[in-house]
């Protein structure tokens, strides 16, 4: 007996993501899923953003890591609420983990909730969490071949932050190549160059964020 199903395979995750998405919409929250390799500077970008936008935008962060709450502590030190999900081995966050984490922070009163995914350019891209938009971070020292090597992640980005731009003179990194390779798979994402450490280019990121909050 043949049964035709045409059923989405990761449907459980997607159903849960849909509920998260409804929660964000009902509470006027902009939710951003932040994806990158380990060490690209996601936490530093978020910490600096929280410091610079204190009093203007209410931000909370859901942190995903395999082990430790180092990142959540950094976010709290920067002045925002944070909850750490320790995946204990899993290489990406699932929508269900995000649902649980939302109960551990004063989520409903926020303007923006960042979900900092597990550092990984492969798996997180396949699991929607209920986010409104995706932020992909690529840092200069990682090398300029990342977009062509991990096209799935870059294809689904809404904004791509090229971090540690202050190091570009010291590293063999072609900005032209990166942008051309991103454009092959994604002709819509905004590409912003910045350095969370020196502050260069951060205002462009804040303006992007402001424009998405008012939308």
């Amino acid at each position: 007996m043949k049964i035709s199903l045409n059923k989405k395979i990761l449907d459980k995750n997607e159903e849960c993501a849909m509920q998260n998405s409804e929660f964000f919409a009902d509470n006027d929250i902009l939710c951003l899923n932040v994806i990158s390799s380990p060490g690209s500077g996601k936490t530093t970008i978020l910490s600096q953003t929280i410091r610079d936008l204190t009093g203007e935008i209410k931000i909370a962060v859901i942190e995903g890591d395999i082990r430790t709450d180092i990142d959540a502590k950094k976010i709290r030190a920067a002045g925002a609420s944070a909850v750490q999900i320790e995946t204990k081995g899993s290489c990406h966050l699932s929508a269900q983990q995000v649902t649980g984490a939302l109960m551990a922070i004063p989520a409903a009163g926020m303007d923006v909730i960042f979900i900092e995914n597990v550092g990984n350019l492969v798996c997180p891209s396949d699991f929607v969490l209920g986010e409104d938009l995706r932020v992909v971070v690529l840092s200069v020292p990682e090398g300029d071949d990342k977009p062509i090597k991990y096209p799935g992640t870059f294809a689904k980005a809404d904004v791509i932050l090229i971090n540690k731009i202050d190091l570009i003179d010291y590293i063999d990194f072609s900005l032209e190549r990166v942008i051309a390779d991103i454009r092959v798979v994604n002709d819509k994402a905004e590409i912003l160059q910045l350095s969370a450490t020196t502050g260069e280019g951060m205002e462009n990121w804040y303006n992007w964020l402001r424009s998405k909050i008012t939308q």
Partner: peptide, 9 residues
């Protein structure tokens, strides 16, 4: 998309 299209029992 990633789909389970059909099964045979």
């Amino acid at each position: 998309p990633l789909l389970l299209e059909e099964i045979e029992l």
